[in-house]
Design a protein around this nucleic acid. Structure first.
Lengths: 190, 190
DNA sequence: CGCCGAGTTGAACTGAATCAAGAAACGTGG
DNA sequence: CCACGTTTCTTGATTCAGTTCAACTCGGCG
């Protein structure tokens, strides 16, 4: 729980009373590698803070083996199928554990309680949303006016940690190209 | 103000007291065609509801004439440079009036007041965010696993109103292709 | 040891960009 | 209300980035 506490202390001043309330609602959940934190069609019940591990967000495709990766999250980041979470409707993407994963989760209902009774609740909700929107917006812009090589280089400079743990084929999918194309780009620029 | 009221009544039950508070904070703003509601580098101060007109969101590009369109909004929709608004940092995109435009705006500060003193404030914030996130997410998925023709057809079926008022070159830019490519697609499928 | 998934490489193909030029539509001033 | 210039849209020819299909290498694991 300590990593979570430290993280939100960075986002905003955390008074002890607020923390008391928040911590009461934290649920620890663990998942082993390749398992799903959330499957297609389920309603996202949690917003989660990754204590250890790496997860991937993906949209599985009609014709198998053509799934697309829409995001990754690491230790000390929040993760949720936000679309589904905020609207409490079925998710059209999956959340999958790339490694063994351990998270601290707050359920939708409990988050509402936290909103009502603390100041920090809003910060958690707002900040993790801001971050998401920023990533999505950058991503949109990069699809619209960069080529694959530039997208790769950007990703590499902005999130180098990705390349330590994540298979290249998922990264290829994330930047919107085939593994073959990524392989060629990497050879070209090295 | 009436169109705004009707709109939020659709989103949630609106009690008279809440409306009294909200309406007090509404500012009418008008822009004539081709003017900007927000320029690059400014901080978005408002969340606005479009009473009449059409606006376009765009990222102007280093080499002129290569700007990219990242969104449109119509009558009875909310519009804001959300990224900038929520984080109160400089916007990297512009909001431009494609026609003469009239909006009802709520400033950041006043929205905080509304949050504190009404229930409807949250609904306004939350719903317009949900909508944005949904559009962005769909868009991301469509860039990743659809070709230009499919993107065009989707857009056409989902937002036919776009094609009545908006120059095709902006639509081309929005779906991520050149006007020439769009022209060819349209010929091919008709 | 043999297998399997991840990554690489090659060759052919294709969707969309680019460059260039002309046609159509639009709006502004006389 | 017409004439003009400007912007938008279309069409053609060429080029190019990235896909597809296929074969091969490499490293880890049962």
């Amino acid at each position: 729980m300590n990593s979570f506490k430290k993280h939100i202390e960075k986002l905003s001043v955390l008074n002890p009373k607020d923390w008391e309330i928040v911590s009461k609602y934290l649920e620890k959940r663990v998942f082993s590698k390749k398992n799903k934190l959330l499957s297609i069609g389920q309603i996202e019940k949690y917003i989660s803070f990754i204590d250890t591990g790496v997860v991937r967000l993906l949209i599985p495709n009609e014709d198998e083996n053509k799934e697309i990766t829409i995001g990754f999250s690491f230790q000390n980041e929040f993760i949720s199928a936000y679309d589904s979470f905020v609207s409490q409707t079925k998710s059209y993407y999956e959340v999958e554990a790339l490694t063994n994963v351990s998270v601290w989760s707050i359920s939708y209902k409990n988050l509402e309680e936290i909103y009502k009774s603390t100041h920090i609740g809003n910060i958690i909700g707002r900040k993790s949303f801001e971050r998401l929107l920023l990533i999505k917006s950058k991503r949109e812009a990069s699809f619209l006016n960069e080529n694959a090589e530039q997208r790769y280089l950007n990703l590499f400079s902005e999130r180098p940690e990705l390349f330590k743990t994540i298979p290249l084929k998922y990264i290829a999918s994330y930047i919107g190209i085939t593994p073959q194309a990524l392989s060629r780009i990497r050879r070209r620029i090295s």
